[in-house]
Each structure stands twice: as C-alpha cells, then as structure tokens.
C-alpha cells in the first residue's frame, strides 16, 4: 500500500483500501478505479495527477461521499466518507466557482456555515471517539479570509460582477471557512489564465499555511502539482490506478522564484517520466479498452 509519509500515524486523514469503482456493465464496463489503496496523513498537501480517464476525479468523488465504492473501503479520519461529510469534515472547491449568483460574495461564503447545523455535534463526537480529544475550532473570521485573498472590497458584490479569478478566490474562501479536516480541490485553477493561476496558487499556499488542513488537489499540471504539494500521486488509466507516489522535498514557503530551480525541474521531469511510462505500459488487461 503506498503510504504518503514515512511516520506512522494511527489515524490517517484519508485511507483507501482496495477501492474499486466500475461504471457500466458487462463488455462496455469501464474500470475507473482498480483496487486503489492510499493513506494520506493529516495536514499533508497531496496532489493527484494523471491523464484523462485515470480515475482521479472518481477518487475525489469517493472521498467526497458523492459516490460509494463498489468494493473496498474509503475512510476519512477513521469514519466512512459518508459519515465524515454528514459531520461537515469535508470541503470541496469544484472546477467552476459554483457561487450563487443572487448572493453577495460575503453571503456566498457565509451560507455554508448555516447549512447542516447538526454537523457540529456529529463532528465533535467523531473527534472525541477517533482522536480521543475534543476539538472546538473557533468560528472563522470570514471577513479576514476575504481580506487575505484580496476580496475585501468586493465583499458586497454579486459573483457575476467579478472576474473568474476573483470568483474562484471566493470559492476557496468558502471552502476554507468551513474549516474542513479534508479539503478536496477538483482542478480549481484549470479554467484560469496563467497569471491568475499563479497568484491563486500563492494565495492558496498562504491560506493553507494558516489553516493546515489536509488537502487533496486534483490537477492536470505537473508544475502546479510540484509547486503546491508535499506529495504527488501519479495515476494512470485503463484501468484507473496509482502508479507512483512521489514526495516533493522542497523547502516551504515556495515562492515564484523556486519554480526556476534545478531541484524543482528535477521533480517535474521525474513526474513526467512516470506519467509517460504509465501511458506506454498499461498494467493489466491491455485489451480492456
């Protein structure tokens, strides 16, 4: 089982054990995930990278409790993904900002706090039974979070009045505001231009530095994966599987200038090699496609 980190922690933030997900039936069935196992330690920033159809989005949907595995288990801090979501331990930043167009930025980031109020009690109970201690995170200061990503002046604006980059910043604040134990990000910057993307990467790292939650970040971009992550999980398609888990041993904070260093390029090349190798040699059942 690939383990993300060397130190053994009794309760991983995310644990997949032989997770299987198959779409369709019979001849036309597609194995999106083929007995995938993965442990992610609390507080890690983990990117999942791979070509289309490698199952990275399916993996995210399983952790988000949007779908259930056909076989195997998906756990979040020792409970099922479903229970974790019911306790609001999981936050999501989707590919599109997904803000409500009739609510101001401020109300958009505030609404999730008023939804599913029973979650606080469930979350405390899970924390007590799994970690053996109570956690009582103070209510987040949404104003400060908005300020931190440069949306202080835009808090009363409606989402359609903002640029795509600003909308996605609001979506990130909305997710961090939940103070989730696990934050899932599904290619959140893929629709943005390169300059905006780099500035958002920087702000994401700043926020994560303060909140230190476990992040699972799905991306297409090798550079993005290396820049953001403690660990990069490389996946391959047909069937969807993990081919490599690479720890990124670069100092933090990672500024823009670090992208130009040799060490950085080394990691990029390594990941590209692994991606290409996986593409050339499908693991099992070549005729399955």
């Amino acid at each position: 089982m690939p383990t993300v980190s060397t130190t053994a922690d009794p309760v991983p933030a995310i644990r997949l054990v032989d997770a299987v997900k198959v779409y369709g039936e019979g001849e036309r069935s597609l194995i999106a995930l083929d007995r995938v196992s993965l442990d992610i330690e609390p507080g890690r920033f983990v990117s999942i990278i791979g070509p289309s159809g490698c199952g990275k989005s399916t993996l995210l949907r399983l952790i988000a409790g949007l779908e259930d595995a056909d076989d195997g288990a998906v756990g979040v801090f020792g409970v099922t993904a479903q229970d974790a979501c019911a306790a609001k331990m999981v936050g999501l930043v989707p590919q599109q900002p997904a803000l409500l167009p009739w609510l101001s930025v401020e109300r958009n980031v505030g609404l999730p706090l008023r939804i599913n109020r029973g979650a606080a009690r469930r979350r405390a109970a899970i924390a007590e039974s799994v970690l053996g201690r109570r956690i009582d995170p103070p209510a987040p200061d949404m104003g400060a979070l908005l300020e931190a990503v440069g949306l202080g002046d835009a808090r009363h604006k409606l989402p359609p009045q903002l640029s795509g980059g600003m909308q996605q910043r609001a979506a990130i604040v909305r997710a961090f505001g939940l103070q989730p134990d696990v934050l899932l990000m599904d290619e959140p910057f893929s629709a943005l231009d390169e300059f905006t993307r780099e500035s958002l990467q920087e702000q994401l790292l700043d926020l994560w530095d303060e909140v230190k939650t476990t992040v699972v970040f799905v991306t297409h971009s090798v550079t993005e994966a290396v820049r953001l992550s403690d660990t990069v999980v490389v996946m391959a398609p047909r069937p969807g599987r993990i081919v490599d888990v690479i720890d990124i041993d670069l100092p933090r904070p990672r500024s823009g200038s670090q992208i130009k260093t040799a060490a950085f390029h080394g990691y990029e090349d390594l990941i590209r090699d692994r991606l290409q190798a996986a593409w050339r040699t499908p693991a099992t059942g070549e005729d399955r496609a």
Partner: peptide
C-alpha cells in the same frame, strides 16, 4: 441548478 453548485452543497450534506 449547475452540477458544481449541487456538488458543493451535497458534500456538506445540505438537507
């Protein structure tokens, strides 16, 4: 409702 909006509010289990 756009799929991404439904996804976000489903993950936090809005009733």
């Amino acid at each position: 409702v756009p799929a991404a909006v439904l996804q976000f509010y489903t993950v936090i289990r809005a009733s």
